[in-house]
């Protein structure tokens, strides 16, 4: 199956001379939940933004649905790729339903007039994320977990084939984190692929079909493959530059990662 997004030999730097990613290749296929993991500052978010097409690589190519990303207009791209950044801070009070309808932007005309079809899509996205009961609430009054689900619904309302999420669980309780990942697992389909950046390797190992592991000093991908192949002690230790221990989760059987703490200092 052709990948939804294919990135080959891409380099990127926010400032000249400070390369974040160097000749990195990655892809997202339909039907998969892809986890992008790695230490802080290794370029996970940058990789996701390149895949999303909101950043342009300095060199290399990104192809979105078999078309060169640079040749697509921003609206064309947004109809194929949905991107949820890590920080979303709304400044206006807004009804949840209206916030979800904002996701229809790439499909509606300049004046943002919604057709019955657009409203139906928004309703369906609320159902998919189990947020129907919130539809008339004010977005700003929602809890962190509820917000994240509604934001997910608003990005789904773009009807993207590729869904890219940056740390969707970073500020959530344990059970809300699991709920979001379980939801993402359900949302991937034969047409839809999902990529998620997370610093929680355990969650990624438990829910993702494939893992891309980035390294601090590697400026790119250390390893890529199924969770059991990638989440191993040598590969993780190389990526994080620390002694990482991996065992098997007693309940789920998936890789469970932990790090030896430094010896207690005697003061």
């Amino acid at each position: 199956m052709n990948p939804l997004i294919e990135m080959s030999g891409c380099s990127f730097a926010y400032e000249p001379g400070k390369t974040v990613l160097e000749r990195v290749s990655a892809r997202l296929a339909p039907g998969e939940l892809l986890g992008i993991v790695g230490p802080n500052g290794c370029g996970k978010s940058t990789l996701l933004r390149l895949l999303a097409g909101v950043l342009r690589p300095i060199s290399g190519h990104v192809r979105i649905a078999d078309k060169e990303a640079a040749s697509l207009s921003q609206l064309q791209r947004a109809r194929t790729v949905g991107f949820l950044p890590q920080t979303v801070n709304p400044i206006f009070a807004m009804r949840v339903l209206d916030a979800v309808c904002l996701g229809r932007f790439p499909h509606v005309g300049a004046f943002g007039t919604l057709s019955p079809h657009d409203r139906a899509v928004a309703d369906r996205c609320l159902t998919e994320t189990e947020t129907e009961s919130l539809r008339d609430r004010d977005f700003l009054s929602l809890s962190g977990g509820e917000r994240q689900r509604v934001l997910l619904a608003s990005v789904l309302a773009q009807e993207p084939r590729a869904l890219l999420l940056d740390e969707p669980t970073s500020s959530l309780d344990v059970h809300h984190q699991i709920e979001i990942f379980a939801l993402l697992r359900d949302l991937r389909s034969a047409e839809r692929g999902i990529a998620v950046v997370t610093h929680d390797i355990n969650l990624a190992g438990r829910f993702c079909d494939r893992i891309v592991l980035l390294g601090q000093s590697a400026r790119g991908v250390v390893a890529e493959g199924s969770p059991v192949d990638v989440l191993t002690e040598p590969l993780l230790s190389k990526a994080y530059g620390a002694q990482i221990r991996v065992c098997q989760h007693p309940l789920t059987g998936t890789p469970l990662i932990t790090v030896d703490a430094p010896a207690e200092s005697k003061r």
Binding site: V54, Q74, A78, P85, V108, F111
Partner: peptide, 22 residues
């Protein structure tokens, strides 16, 4: 004519950019 784009900015520049706002 930019009204719907300003709506998008209300949720942050990055999300707006992801939705196709230049």
């Amino acid at each position: 004519m930019q009204a719907s784009r300003y709506d998008q900015l209300g949720f942050g520049e990055e999300l707006a950019a992801g939705r196709g706002v230049d």
